[in-house]
Nucleic acid binder design. Structure first.
Length: 203
DNA sequence: AGCGGGATTAGC
DNA sequence: CTAATCCCGCTT
């Protein structure tokens, strides 16, 4: 019923600014839950609610790409906050992150799952899948989330969400860092990337 | 120049 | 459980 572009205009008016991202990654990861991720394309806007994130705290965090030092691949993480860090993984998928914290402290928040809102035709239930659904690839690496076609809009604070903290996925190589509860998701939301593990009774 | 591996996903 | 598949990042 809405005129095309209406969602986009509304979202742009709520676009998160630099100061939102210029905080520690854990805070940003928590606060991005419930925000709207928008990609404005020539054919209209694609958008989804962020329902799952992970915080990568900085070079001291052994699960973070920045822990191995600055390289061409992760250079965006070392730059100013509020930019998109997009990398290819396993030769097949892309992952979208928002750079956080202060410039030089290479921290970021991985966007792991979205609840579709508009213009989305395939699954957004996982970091690689959501990038596919929104057409995000390495061409988007370094985009300014406060100015460019890819951005986050403030959540609707009227409906509080229950957020669960759990260990991050796929970072078992990171020793003790792998166990920290730096993954955040909306409790019970069906678009979270992995189902709650059903506890298997021990034999 | 060569080689190993990954913040994933789908399919057996 | 494992293949897929592409850079990247480090070693030779």
């Amino acid at each position: 019923m809405d005129k095309p572009g209406r969602l986009k205009d509304e979202a742009i008016s709520r676009r998160l600014e630099r100061s939102f991202y210029a905080r520690d990654a854990e805070t940003v990861a928590r606060e991005l839950i419930g925000a709207l991720l928008v990609r404005a394309t020539p054919r209209g806007a694609q958008a989804g609610l962020v329902v799952e994130t992970e915080a990568y705290l900085g070079p001291h965090d052994l699960a973070a790409h920045s822990s191995k030092g600055r390289t061409p691949r992760n250079a965006v993480m070392f730059g100013p906050p509020g930019h998109a860090y997009v990398y290819m993984i396993y030769g097949i998928h892309h992952c979208l992150n928002a750079v956080t914290d202060v410039e030089g402290h290479a921290a970021a928040v991985l966007i792991r799952a979205l609840e579709p809102v508009a213009g989305i035709e395939t699954s957004t239930q996982g970091p690689g899948l959501l990038c596919r659904a929104l057409g995000i690839d390495r061409a988007h690496n370094g985009l300014d989330l406060t100015r460019d076609e890819l951005f986050f809009a403030a959540k609707n604070s009227a409906e509080p969400l229950e957020i669960v903290a759990a260990p991050r996925i796929g970072v078992d190589y990171a020793g003790a860092w792998a166990a920290l509860p730096l993954r955040f998701y909306v409790r019970g939301n069906p678009f979270v990337s992995r189902k709650e593990r059903t506890r298997r009774p021990k034999s």
